[in-house]
Design a protein around this nucleic acid. Structure first.
Length: 311
DNA sequence: AAGTATGTCAACCGCCATCTT
DNA sequence: TAAGATGGCGGTTGACATACT
């Protein structure tokens, strides 16, 4: 293990390759193959480390390297594979004949990544970015609620609420439950008694509340709305919203996880050739303003990830 | 025309996995 | 089995080109 001695330690050359060096390296490899990269520089008459030679050959001098602009198909392949593989540039390069991992990595960092960011898509997850700032009030409210739950054992007390809301009718037909209820009611409870509930330092009368939602407001949901309406308790609703299946602003979920959809009627005319060449998928730049989300958002992997969470 | 900002990409660095002894 | 050697990978840097003021 351990790293090999640096170039400076061995008085080896660094920096850009000269045409003469390129020629020496190419000539040697074409004659003898690269063999051991460590031994190669000496045999080829180069004052470079083996690693530098390997890099120069694999990324630049190799005869099968395709140079020039990436095609739309290549871009789409990179985007698709990156959504599956992440920053596995060599694995992605394996699917793009003639392209090197370094080239793909550079292209990703200088073009594709920026484009996704502009589209409001997280370049790492390939999913629409959540806007933390717009969610801040809800997040703070949730944090407050969590703290209160821990402090007052509210969760424990909510069980009493639920029992008190429904039990008698059920218990009539269920002797075991009736017995259990009796047992519970005989135990003095520090938080709930005499139809009132201890919430932090305050005692709240049960008659003020008929639902858990109202209780949530009372303990500092932070707004005029019931907390249930401020946070996406319905996970499926959120996922559907993420996938663009719900565009109804009156939906109970107020977390808008998608960046605003844009009207593409104008750009459709000017970029129809690009879209047609990419199977209707437009990844950004001038083609980014599509009314619909790019197809890769709806790919199986994306859907599976999200749907599995709510299963 | 000159200076500055920004973009691009070849090359390097350091880490890790695998191979060899 | 341990330790060194080697190749490969991903992140980062810095020189150069281009755009902007």
């Amino acid at each position: 293990m351990g790293r090999s001695p640096s170039s400076e330690e061995n008085n080896l050359k660094k920096g850009p390759w000269t045409p003469e060096e390129d020629q020496k390296l190419t000539d040697y490899i074409q004659k003898h193959g690269h063999g051991s990269w460590r031994a190669l520089p000496k045999l080829a008459g180069l004052k470079r480390c083996g690693k530098s030679c390997r890099l120069r050959w694999t990324n630049y001098l190799r005869p099968d390297i395709k140079r020039g602009k990436f095609s739309n198909e290549e871009e789409n392949t990179i985007l698709h594979l990156h959504s599956i593989l992440g920053n596995k540039w060599s694995a992605i390069a394996a699917h793009l004949p003639g392209r090197t991992d370094n080239e793909i990595k550079n292209y990703w960092n200088t073009h594709l990544k920026k484009r996704l960011i502009q589209m409001g898509i997280d370049p790492m997850t390939h999913q629409p970015k959540t806007d933390l700032f717009s969610c801040l009030p809800q997040l703070i409210a949730l944090a407050n609620l969590k703290e209160l739950l821990e402090q007052t054992q509210l969760a424990h007390n909510l069980q009493y609420f639920n029992l008190l809301r429904q039990p008698l009718a059920i218990a009539e037909n269920n002797p075991d439950l009736a017995t259990a209820l009796n047992a519970i009611n005989q135990e003095p409870d520090p938080y709930f008694s005499n139809n009132s509930l201890q919430v932090g330092q305050e005692r709240v009368e049960m008659s003020d509340f008929f639902s858990v939602e109202n209780a949530a407001v009372a303990i500092g949901g932070g707004g005029s709305q019931p907390l249930q309406q401020q946070v996406p308790f319905d996970q499926e609703d959120v996922v559907q919203s993420q996938m663009g299946l719900i565009n109804d602003k009156s939906s109970s979920s107020t977390w808008n996880l998608l960046p605003p959809l844009m009207d593409s009627s104008a750009s459709n005319n000017t970029n129809s050739h690009e879209n047609s060449s990419t199977g209707g998928v437009s990844y950004g730049g001038e083609g980014a303003s599509s009314l619909n989300w790019p197809d890769f958002i709806f790919e199986e992997s994306f859907l599976d990830d999200n749907l599995s969470e709510i299963r």
